[in-house]
């Protein structure tokens, strides 16, 4: 009984406390860099698209709101189109988790409200930024052992030059 009265009293005292609500949009809250907001596609340190259109983000997406098509230039894969339907996106960040190249990243921007739902469909041009995002140094193609323009077989990180098949040495 006393406990109950004490609870009531303590709760009542909260009427005189500071209120934690931030009066958005008059006040802007601080969002940490890893806040899961609007999705972007980043570029690698050389300024090339990081996305290699592996489709892992699309398959990880629980609401199936990512779609893309692979294209290729001299061994380098990139998305021919990359489309996110933000009217379906739930900002779970699974796509970022799934991305093997740090291409897809979620940003602290969440102010995406629109009056027309169709405008929430973002194409690659809308998603691609000019920077590297949260991972300034990573480049998938420097690590993976595939040949692209400007990098031949055996020139990736941790690779020996190609084997000479015709040598008689052991």
């Amino acid at each position: 009984m006393l406990d109950t009265m004490r609870t009531l009293f303590l709760t009542f005292l909260h009427a005189f406390r500071h209120r934690v609500t931030i009066q958005y949009p008059e006040e802007k809250p601080y969002l940490p860099p890893r806040y899961r907001g609007r999705i972007i596609l980043s570029r690698d340190p050389d300024g090339e698209e990081r996305c290699v259109s592996c489709n892992l983000c699309a398959v990880a997406c629980p609401v199936d709101c990512i779609s893309l098509q692979k294209a290729e230039v001299e061994g380098r894969w990139y998305p021919e189109y990359f489309r996110i339907n933000f009217s379906r996106c739930i900002f779970c960040g699974f796509c970022e988790e799934a991305c093997p190249t740090y291409a897809i990243q979620l940003t602290p921007d969440f102010e995406m409200g629109e009056y027309v739902r169709q405008t929430l469909v973002y194409e690659k041009e809308d998603l691609l930024i000019s920077g590297t995002g949260k991972y300034p140094d990573y480049s998938f193609y420097r690590v993976a052992g595939v040949r692209i323009a400007g990098k031949d077989w055996g020139e990736s990180e941790h690779e020996r030059p190609p084997v000479d098949l015709r040598t008689l040495l052991p």
């Binding site: 009542f12 009427a15 209120r19 609500t21």
Partner: peptide, 8 residues
């Protein structure tokens, strides 16, 4: 309720 829960 807001008042007693430190919000508006």
């Amino acid at each position: 309720l807001g008042l007693w829960q430190d919000r508006y």
